[in-house]
Deep mutational scan, measured.
Amino acid sequence: KVLVLALYDYQEKSPREVTMKKGDILTLLNSTNKDWWKVEVNGRQGFVPAAYVKVL
């Protein structure tokens, strides 16, 4: 399983997205889209901007 680090806070803007806080460790589920990556955080799955996270 691939983990990513949240570099910035992100507030979800649609039901398909998830909120994350800077420093959160998320599970990367899909990174085929260069702009939006699907992650799991706190038991929820959704998209975050790829530029806001870094693969650990």
Rank of each mutant, 00 (worst) to 15 (best):
D24M: 14
T27M: 11
L56A: 08
N33M: 13
V53P: 00
T19V: 03
G46H: 02
L29S: 03
K13I: 11
V4E: 00
G43S: 07
N42C: 05
K1D: 10
W36T: 03
R16C: 06
D9N: 08
K34S: 11
T32G: 12
W37M: 05
Y52H: 05
W36C: 04
Q45D: 07
L29T: 05
W37E: 01
V18W: 07
K13G: 11
S31M: 12
V2H: 15
V55N: 07
K1A: 15
S31L: 07
V53S: 01
Y52C: 05
M20W: 01
W37I: 06
V39S: 00
N42L: 09
N42H: 11
K22F: 06
S31E: 07
W37N: 01
K13A: 14
E17T: 08
K21T: 09
Q11V: 09
T27F: 14
M20I: 14
G43F: 08
E12N: 14
K21W: 11
Y52A: 14
A50K: 10
E12I: 07
V41Q: 14
V55G: 04
R16Q: 15
T27K: 07
R44M: 11
T27H: 09
Y52W: 10
F47I: 09
L26Q: 01
V4W: 05
D35M: 10
K21Q: 13
Q45R: 08
K21A: 11
K22I: 11
K54A: 14
L5T: 13
Y52L: 15
V4H: 03
N33I: 08
Y8V: 13
V48C: 03
W36A: 03
M20S: 01
V53W: 00
A50N: 03
K34E: 10
G46N: 01
K54P: 01
R16Y: 14
Y52G: 07
S31I: 06
K1S: 12
V41K: 15
V18S: 03
Y8C: 06
E40K: 08
Y8A: 14
L7V: 10
K54V: 12
K21N: 10
T32R: 11
K13F: 05
V39Y: 00
K34P: 14
D9L: 02
I25Q: 11
K22G: 07
L56V: 11
L26E: 00
G23W: 08
P15V: 08
G23L: 03
K34F: 07
G46L: 03
V4K: 01
W37R: 02
K54C: 06
K34W: 06
L56D: 05
V18N: 05
K1C: 06
D24W: 08
Y8F: 13
K22M: 12
D24P: 00
F47C: 05
Y8I: 13
K13M: 14
D35P: 03
E17G: 10
P15F: 12
Y52T: 09
D24A: 09
R16D: 15
Y8P: 00
K21V: 09
S31V: 08
V55H: 06
K1W: 10
V48A: 04
K38Y: 15
E40H: 05
V55E: 09
D9H: 06
A50C: 05
E40C: 05
L7D: 02
M20T: 04
Y8N: 09
G43I: 04
N42Y: 10
K38T: 09
F47T: 04
V2G: 14
K54E: 08
K13V: 09
K34L: 11
R16P: 07
K54M: 14
A50P: 05
Y10W: 14
V4A: 13
N30K: 09
I25F: 12
V39G: 01
G43P: 02
V2M: 08
I25M: 11
D24I: 04
R44K: 14
Y10S: 01
T19C: 05
A51R: 14
V39I: 10
K22D: 02
W37K: 02
V39R: 00
L7S: 03
K38E: 09
A51N: 10
V18A: 07
Y52S: 13
A6F: 01
L26A: 09
A51E: 15
E12W: 05
K38L: 13
W36M: 08
D9S: 08
L7M: 07
K22S: 09
V41E: 04
K34V: 14
S31Q: 12
V41G: 10
G46D: 01
K38P: 02
P49G: 01
V18R: 02
A50H: 04
P15E: 12
K22H: 09
G23F: 06
Y8E: 13
V48P: 00
M20N: 00
Y52V: 06
R44T: 09
K34R: 07
L3G: 03
V48E: 00
T27Y: 14
D24N: 12
A6D: 00
K1R: 11
F47V: 08
G43A: 09
T32Y: 12
